[in-house]
Design a protein around this nucleic acid. Sequence first.
DNA 1: CCATAGTTTGATATTAACTATCAATTGACA
DNA 2: TGTCAATTGATAGTTAATATCAAACTATGG
Lengths: 144, 144
Amino acid sequence: MDAIAFKDKLKRYGYKLTTQRRAVLDVLIQRPGEHLSTEEIYSYVKESFPEIGLATVYRTMQLFEEIGIVNRLNFDDGCSRFELYVDNEDHHHHHLICEKCNKVFEVENDLLEEIEKEIGEKYKFYVKNHKVTFYGHCQECNEH
Amino acid sequence: MDAIAFKDKLKRYGYKLTTQRRAVLDVLIQRPGEHLSTEEIYSYVKESFPEIGLATVYRTMQLFEEIGIVNRLNFDDGCSRFELYVDNEDHHHHHLICEKCNKVFEVENDLLEEIEKEIGEKYKFYVKNHKVTFYGHCQECNEH
DNA sequence: CCATAGTTTGATATTAACTATCAATTGACA
DNA sequence: TGTCAATTGATAGTTAATATCAAACTATGG
Ligand SMILES: [Zn+2]
Ligand SMILES: [Zn+2]
Ligand SMILES: [Zn+2]
Ligand SMILES: [Zn+2]
């Protein structure tokens, strides 16, 4: 996401482009696949923008979620984590959590269209999004 | 789950049967499909067992999760919710959350075997469980 | 049934993620 | 550049959940 697209998206929702919001987005762009918590994002942003306040990062993540820039993830570790929402993915990817080493893996394949179609027909529920997490054991933990 | 099966399960994991644990289980059995929070369970248990402490209910839910009596659910409303784990379900059911009225619906059909098989082959990740939530609009909210 | 030892409980203090408040600052637009 | 509403940073407040610890209870074996 470049500066112009970012400003446009904010404007479309009635929000302003600020240095702080840009700095938070930059951290997310520079660290793909890390599933960062708000506190982690805060500490990374501080490297390039030491004046930023923690409350601003919390507010920014809420705003980014609202306007569809990030997905809020819940890995049951007591805090929200975030990843950039990628437009050209049909749906965002799934997560595999290893119950032994707690590593998080990503699954690109979606395959839920079938199920969502059935839910629409059977329950008359229009599915807009989904969150899918698989729990189990990763290759490394199975071998050792 | 009857008293004997309950006591056996606790014993198998090295835990004791207490009046408090039995009282918490009874609330869950008497209120299927309600996705209760810990505080809600606490207030229901107090009706039949006023001396119980909130900390005990938190500890009991943790223990019930550990020994597979309940599923811990996360509906992004700031607290964990719980439902009885039903043994003879192949996997527990899925949840549909309406983003307009916030009602939670249940989907019995699973259909994830295919995906889990693929994950096992492609990522060498052995799937033991999954959590699936669909977000969208329910029938009532679509019509009005 | 009773004594014992280890577990569990209830009350309460503490933690930690997150939100609310508010004066000062900043960004968008004319 | 001036105006004004939006945003920020510092900090206080909130709340779900955990830690602590003395008292009470449960399982077990005699
Ligand atoms: Zn692992
Ligand atoms: Zn991810
Ligand atoms: Zn609805
Ligand atoms: Zn359910």
